[in-house]
Structure formats: C-alpha cells, structure tokens
Amino acid sequence: MENPKYENLVDFYSSLRNRDIIVYYKGPFDEIILSEIGTKIRNKVFDPPKIGNRLFSVFMELAQNIALYSAEKNQLETGVKWGVGTIAVYETQTCYTLISGNLIKNDVLDQIVAKCEEINMLDHEGLRAMKREYRSSIIKADHKGGNIGLIQVALKSDSLELDTKEVDQEHSFFTISVNVLK
C-alpha cells in the first residue's frame, strides 16, 4: 500500500535520480546551515579550484538571499527568524547547477524579476559596472543584505534562469537556477 503522504517525495526523489546531487536542503536558512553546507562545498575538491570557489560563492549568495528575503520565516529556538526556502546543487557533465526557491510577496515580484532581467542583459563588464554602482550608491541602505548578491551570482555563473508560480493572492514561489560552467 502506498502512503499518499510520501508519494510526492518519492516522485521528487525519482526526478533527481539521474543527477549527481551535492546538496539538497529545504528548511530555515539559519547561520549554522549556511556555514555547514558552505563548508561542505568549500571542502570538496574541484579541478580547477576556481570552479569550487565560484560554486561556493554562488551558493552563499543564493542561501543568504533566502535567509534574509524569503517571505516564509521560521522562528528558531534562539528567537531569531530565518527565511525558509530550498536549494539543490548538482553536477552534470558540463557544469554545476544550483537551484534556489522560496516564497516572495507578489508586490515585490515584478521588481525582482525586472532586476534579474536587467542583469541578464549585461555582459561581464556591464555586470561589474552595475555591481560597483549598486555597492557605491546604496551602501548601508540595508545593513545586512548585500543587495548586490544577484549581480555577484551572475558574475560567477551563466544567466539567471527564473521561474515564478503564484501560490496565493499574496505570495509566489520564486525559483532561480544558474549553472557554474566547468
């Protein structure tokens, strides 16, 4: 007898069957999870090492985006609220793929999608210029958030592939997928 409770999980697991998974996580992105998974990626041996540096850097920015900006929060025992979301990192023959997903409010969705589309139109030098401009102009505007995280992700990977799915009147599930080429 199949237990329907697990059916989706089995489907999901099967969909990842042929992927070489490095990390899959769903839950609150607290500081310990970030550094544990980050260190796990950092300690994996890559050839050349710069690919590992890129993957680590992209993971950290995507994970911090979830921690800070996810519309879904989980209050842990410390009393601090951390953003909830999901990240999968897997390896293919040509690249490492990172997929991050989390809930965001519909009223900021257009703004974030527009920013990602702007990022995708720029080449490497254009992205560097955008990063410098953002970093210089909005310094301290948001004390914790780098606000340039997505630009940094684009600098270290190919384009940002987006997917949005409205889940209710207020929220959408927002997915960013990127490839770090080998």
């Binding site: 920015e61 210089s136 301290k140 340039i148 995280g149």
Partner: peptide, 14 residues
C-alpha cells in the same frame, strides 16, 4: 582575502 560575501564587500569598501 580568498573569499568575502557581498555584505562584507560593502563593509570593506567603507
């Protein structure tokens, strides 16, 4: 520095 996240980079710039 071998790695710094973007939040650190803003503080380093300051």
């Amino acid at each position: 520095l071998t790695y710094f996240n973007t939040s650190s980079s803003r503080a380093i710039l300051e």
